[in-house]
Simulated assay, not measured.
Amino acid sequence: MEEIAKLTNGTAMDKHNVSTTLNYWNDPGDGSHPTPIFIGKGRITNERAHNAHHFIVNDITGEEDQHSLDKTGFEYVRHQSCEEDFIDEQSIQLAYYDECKQLLKTVTGANRILIFNHKVRRGPTQWHHLGLYNLKNRGPVTKTHVDQSYFGAELRLRWELPDEADELVKKRYQIVNIWRPIATILKDPIAVADARTVADDDLVEADMTENDFPGKQWVVRHNPEHQWHYKYRMTRQDVLLIKCFDSKTSVARRALHSAFEDAAHRDEESRQSIEVRCLVLYDR
């Protein structure tokens, strides 16, 4: 956080804003539900129709402190990890998970963090089309979405903590993704939308089954009022916290997110990143 403070209190920085397209769900307008997604047995099946819409994605470098989980639904922090390559699964689930839990407790003030999975991405942009066992080449998700709908968040809570869920839903809880580069990000950076510019009417609940968990997420109807942001040239020490759900209704409750193409770096090596999905639990 000290490094962020130095950036925001210093001189104005050159911005690397990007003119690009973001992919939104193609609503057929007949009331039909989005095509379900199935993930498991080494592959993902995603046949939802999306359309590309033009946006300017604004670089927030030097203005990180203007965004927070409760204000805009996302937050950038500086954090040094003991992990470097994120190859050893045991080390990720022990050492890195512990780091993530401490980081979220510090940022949110929550008393308990439960990590329910993580995703490492090193694959090409169009990895979905690689066929059987495409999860071995998992790459960026280039479709606007939120990982859990409001109902989907409760489904996840009840799936992970079935014996406690009836009491936990009476208190505040969140789902927050901790997103970190494994190497400096140039190709296919991640964008997040200011939650204040996204109405609930823009969100459509969709089925996503992963390893037998019957989840529900948000897909998104296009709205030119959405304001998209990112941080240019994120390094391994730049961590993006993305709120997917908050039971508290007086704050930002979710942040749309998507990878996008920056034409200036189209020919760079495939992006490498890790995201850790966390239930954030409070005692009241």
Rank of each mutant, 00 (worst) to 15 (best):
D14A: 15
K15Q: 12
K15C: 10
H16V: 09
H16S: 08
H16T: 07
N17V: 00
V18T: 05
S19N: 15
S19R: 09
S19Q: 14
S19W: 01
S19C: 06
S19M: 08
S19V: 12
T20V: 15
T21G: 05
N23Y: 07
N23T: 03
N23D: 11
N23R: 12
N23V: 01
Y24P: 07
Y24D: 02
W25Q: 08
W25E: 08
W25Y: 12
W25L: 09
N26D: 13
N26K: 10
P28C: 14
P28F: 07
D30Q: 05
D30A: 07
D30F: 02
D30T: 03
S32D: 08
S32Y: 09
H33E: 13
P34Y: 00
P34Q: 02
P34E: 00
P34K: 01
P36G: 08
I37P: 01
I37W: 02
F38E: 12
F38N: 10
K41G: 04
T45A: 10
T45W: 02
N46L: 04
E47L: 13
E47Q: 12
R48Y: 04
A49M: 07
H50C: 10
A52C: 08
H53R: 03
H54C: 11
H54D: 11
F55Q: 10
F55L: 03
I56W: 01
V57N: 00
V57G: 01
V57W: 00
N58S: 13
I60T: 14
T61C: 14
G62K: 05
E63Y: 15
E64C: 12
E64N: 11
E64A: 05
Q66F: 12
Q66V: 04
H67C: 03
H67A: 11
S68N: 05
D70V: 13
D70L: 12
D70T: 15
K71T: 13
E75G: 02
Y76T: 06
V77F: 00
V77W: 00
Q80E: 14
Q80F: 15
Q80A: 13
S81N: 03
E83N: 02
E84K: 08
E84P: 01
D85S: 13
F86H: 03
F86Q: 02
I87N: 13
I87L: 13
E89D: 14
E89F: 05
Q90V: 14
Q90H: 11
Q90L: 12
Q90M: 10
S91K: 14
S91A: 12
S91D: 09
I92Y: 03
I92D: 03
Q93I: 04
L94G: 13
A95Y: 06
A95M: 09
Y97H: 13
Y97N: 04
